[in-house]
Amino acid sequence: MLQQILLEIEKAQGPLDLNNLARKLGIERSALEGMIQFWVRKGRLKDSELETELNCDTSDSTACGGSCPGPQNCSFVMTMPRTYSLASYDSE
């Protein structure tokens, strides 16, 4: 069940939508989210929201019209969908 999630992501040609995956595996969407969080905790999936927050550098205030250059605080940044990617592809 848990493994299938990783397998499906790996198999996917292109980005995979959460709703489609839930339908494919016959898992309730909210339950799938719980399972994904399990993998995020295990470090096997990377949660884009956690990644970008960790990386926000607030020391440089010159960028982007004087606001924080980090993706969270610039007024031009768009609310982008949350993504989870396989950690095994994290080379280098």
């Binding site: 309730e28 909210s30 339950a31 989210e33 719980g34």
Partner: peptide, 8 residues
């Protein structure tokens, strides 16, 4: 309405 998640 979210039975599967809650039953865990």
């Amino acid at each position: 309405a979210n039975l599967e998640r809650n039953l865990y």
